[in-house]
Amino acid sequence: MAEDAAEGGLNIHPMDQFVVKPLFGGTEVNWYTPTNVTLWMALAVLCVVLLLVVGTRGRAIVPSRIQSVAELAYGFVYKMVEDVTGKDGLKYFPYIMTLFIFIVFSNFLGLLPMAFTTTSHIAVTGVMAMAVFLFVTILGFVKNGAGFLSVFWISAAPLVLRPILALIEVISYFVRPVSHSIRLAGNMMAGHAVIKVFAGFAVVALISPVSIAAISAIYALEVLVSFIQAYVFAILTCVYLRDALHPHH
């Protein structure tokens, strides 16, 4: 795809931005090598610290601007966890907040020009989705024992349909981490690749205004998508958590 596009004067490499490179030269990527992944994740951590720790340093009753943004983020996730999982899900609020804030900052940092989007990698989102999946499954069995299996047995359906529905439910249950991770990575990757493709068209003088307008439009869309995907990731985590805590629905 990328290398085929080199013909005809256009030299578009929309996927190059996703390549994992070592930060300090060399080509070997060992598990411990500091790479651009490290850099952008560290920047995400820095942003989290700036927003949620430095921003709230004043502990002001009347908040400063950054502090009110931090409180807004806190209240947003807190309310989401409370609404979706119920009161007993609030114990897991820090985990969901961690995931949400990391994804939000990774997505937004990835929108900076020349940036590397860590959340566009299936490895990253897959680990998070798999961690959520395993956590929720283990938690479900620990909390409810074998009763957790009733999540697959829909008592509202007619008896004849229940085995078929159970089969579908089991499949959809095990597909959860796949859709959960690929949704985020796919959205991020597709948006950034499309921006890169349009940026590649911008070198042709004739269509460069169109291309720049399209980049602006898609960039705006991507800002929206960045937030919505983080929200969707977090809210689906809450939904899975609710299934684990209350399998009888």
Partner: peptide, 29 residues
């Protein structure tokens, strides 16, 4: 060729740094 996302040789690296990042963020939060 192809997608860097499917370059499995970089997976351990990403996962390692991701886990570190998440643990750090979790501790900070």
């Amino acid at each position: 060729v192809g997608m860097p996302q499917l370059d499995f040789s970089s997976f351990p690296n990403q996962i390692f740094w991701l886990v570190i990042t998440l643990v750090v963020i979790y501790l900070i939060l």
